[in-house]
Design a protein around this nucleic acid. Structure first.
Lengths: 270, 270
DNA sequence: TTGCAGAATTTCATATTATGGGATAAAATT
DNA sequence: AATTTTATCCCATAATATGAAATTCTGCAA
């Protein structure tokens, strides 16, 4: 079987947890899939990018084509196949938060004309589950399935509103790393306290330049924060007064979704 | 390595094309993925369903979890993971027909309150690319990524409107198989001629009971049929007169999309 | 608390299956 | 026609996936 994988892999990337355990063929197959996610890619490029021989790349890709995970156009290359449409659709169906929230997000997007995101916490990151582009011609650089820091995004801040200040500190340091001064944390902490009190959060161009967000948490039965939504737009549309106004609308939306999830409690403080 | 795969696979399912070539591990990995698509599934069930040992099922599933293709809840089981949301999203982006058509489909759905489908031809089948559920509480049994016959669905008929009558005959026989009488074909042919003349097609409960559809083709630059859309609802909402009315709306929608694809020609006959 | 049963994970010797070099064929480009 | 690029296939080799069994976890009952 393979020869140079042991050398190249051990030497090249000491990824997190470094799990060389397991199924090389499956891992390589997934690599092929993901290589095609970034756009059409020919066999030669594919093999080069993944450091596989043409034979191996071809064999793996052929299996994926046969199973409809990839589509192949003879002189063009490989693209993602219809099976991924299907599985993506099924994945959405399985996350009931997405199903339940969808109509509410849609309504909020129509009412405000801005981009709406839905997300949950996954590990120490915020995972984007859904995105409804606004009517304005502002591109928000986010992709469904992607993860972003918890402490520098509106979505993320709303997810950790209930955490202790110790935990906040941990997360802040983890996200900002070396760039985090104690002073920067104090400013951020002060804001977070206000957000926690008010039950909503803002993002003032911290994560992405010229983009401001308003966000709020969704609570499930029992009160735990299960998800959050954010409303994003270019700073020019996001005056302080409009953000305060939007906060009310966002909270009305999260309240409605929370109610569907069985949360009957009052919004935290009044 | 494996022992019984050669016996069980050869004996069990002589699938189409019967390709024992290639990558067992990758194929099994994909099997695991698809097993989780139908709902949460525990390791034991997973192993049983795929006729794998617990070890193997566990190893494959663990790789998929690590890569975020599956999510795992300790006492619950495996579900589809966020990576599939991401790849599904990317797959949509890569099919520009979906991107271009989406707002038009949305508008049509809002205007009619019925379910809108977008599809293309893939081999001898119609592939569903997008689905926008209508406001009515009617469940249309279709899934994005799935394939349906060309000759018995509204979407499919619109896709083959330009084909020769010989080709129609071939496809009809292929879809209906033994159940197809020459007489049934003659009736169908007569309708198809009318559909081809009018530039739209109907589905009168042929594919799914109590469901009627109105459909029309989308043409790309050069006039070739690149896709089609259909509007589906329960038969009770689909009187003959309303279907004629809807045909106009559907054709207006496909015309708009075709124009965006560069088709400047007249609608076929006037 | 203790014990138990089922689930989850790990280990390891074995040989089946993936591998990659190269050969072949088929298009495109010159 | 000659050449380059791309696609597919073949096959000896041994690296990798495999499954039986052992071990660790976890929740629940007694």
């Amino acid at each position: 079987m393979g020869l140079k994988q042991s050398t190249s892999k051990a030497a090249a990337k000491p990824r997190e947890a470094a799990a060389p355990s397991g199924s090389q063929t499956l891992l390589r197959g997934l690599d092929v899939l993901e290589a095609a996610a970034s756009g059409v890619i020919g066999l030669a490029d594919l093999a080069a990018r993944l450091e596989l021989t043409r034979s191996t790349a071809h064999r793996l890709a052929s299996v994926l084509v046969e199973r409809r995970y990839l589509a192949f156009a003879p002189r063009e290359g490989y693209t993602l196949g219809p099976k991924l449409l299907e599985l993506g659709f099924s994945a959405r169906q399985q996350m009931n938060i997405i199903r339940i929230a969808a109509p509410h997000l849609e309504a909020l997007s129509v009412a405000t004309e801005d981009t709406v995101h839905l997300g949950v916490q996954e590990g120490a990151l915020a995972l984007y589950l859904d995105k409804i582009p606004g009517r304005r011609r502002v591109e928000i650089g986010s992709r469904v399935g992607e993860r972003q820091p918890l402490t520098t995004t509106g979505l993320g801040k709303a997810l950790i509103l209930d955490e202790s200040e110790e935990r906040w500190h941990e997360l802040f340091m983890a996200d900002l790393g070396a760039r985090a001064s104690e002073n920067a944390f104090r400013i951020w902490l002060k804001r977070m306290r206000a957000y926690a009190r008010d039950g909503h959060a803002f993002d003032l161009e911290e994560n992405e330049d010229r983009i401001r967000c308003v966000s709020a948490p969704i609570r499930e039965a029992g009160g735990r924060i299960a998800a959050s939504i954010s409303l994003s737009s270019a700073a020019q549309y996001m005056s302080d007064s409009r953000m305060e106004q939007l906060a009310k609308e966002v909270k009305a939306t999260t309240a409605a979704i929370s109610r569907e999830l069985g949360w009957r409690g009052d919004p935290p403080r009044a």
